[in-house]
Amino acid sequence: MTKELKTKSHLEKVLSLGHFAVTGELGPPRHAKASDVEDKVSHLLGNVDSVNITDNQTAVVRMSSLSASVLAQRKGLEANMQMVCRDRNRIAMQSDILGAAALGINNLLILSGDHQSFGDHPQAKNVYDLDSINLIRTLKNMRDEGRLMSGQELPEDGRPRLFIGAAYNPFADPEDYRVIRAAKKVKAGADFMQSQCIYDMDRFRNFMSRAVDMGLTEKTYFLAGVTPLKSLGMAKYMKNNVPGITMPDFYIERLKGVPKDKQAEEGIKIACEQIEEFKEMKGISGVHLMLVEWEHMVPVIVKAAKLIPRPNV
């Protein structure tokens, strides 16, 4: 898949040249200390092509994704700034998009956002003025048509040249509709899509073969989400408590079969096996490694999964 580049994004360049991309994830701190972001960046730098900077994930107040993205980029790591629809109306969203582009952000990943009832401010009023699909289209129109939602024109050199990211979740319900919703995001203008953590490989293969058949992977780069299991407890927790994640019993059995102090190692092994399969899977252009609060393991996993060195493009 070769495409004319739409942006200055390093990630876009890696993908367009046909490299198997690797993205990481970084959760900004719950305080204002910049060095926290920088420490996490140090584990990721050179090991991923760009890093998602989460936007108040699980509705917990954190340093803003824009600020943390700028901090990461100052340290040389390209950011995929995340933006959720929960906390901003269309005015703030467009404004932040313009600001992000002005500050040198190249990738913007759009999500609905976890409901605020999960977070540390369940008393908050939510916004959801636009949903994620509306916002993807809004950003695309700003970039490609040079227009705000209002119709207000942006000058040619004042358009936000952002590579547009979105999320897809093959494991939420209704199962048959998930690929249709992904198609809506592709149609709305997503350039790349990252999935929720994948454990149920059967369901994922099935999803991807439908996505390939529908031609979605011709238009948009699909990255597979990987979160290594740290322990049997984590696997069980994900199975029972995280909406939109399915966990096959055989992974649980496999972790049960190893002593507690070896479970993390086994989890990494499982993740590497998955990554090997993703490298060969039709329609998959890369992996998205989500090791939030486990960033220091990123160098370990990219080495084990033979994902380094990263292309210097």
Binding site: H115, A172, D173, P243, G244
Partner: peptide, 21 residues
């Protein structure tokens, strides 16, 4: 819809239930 989505469902829909409850 807990998020008033016009293009749902979000990734939190599981077993016909909302992620909120």
């Amino acid at each position: 819809c807990s998020k008033s989505l016009l293009n749902g469902p979000c990734g939190g829909s599981a077993g016909g239930k909302c992620e909120v409850s």
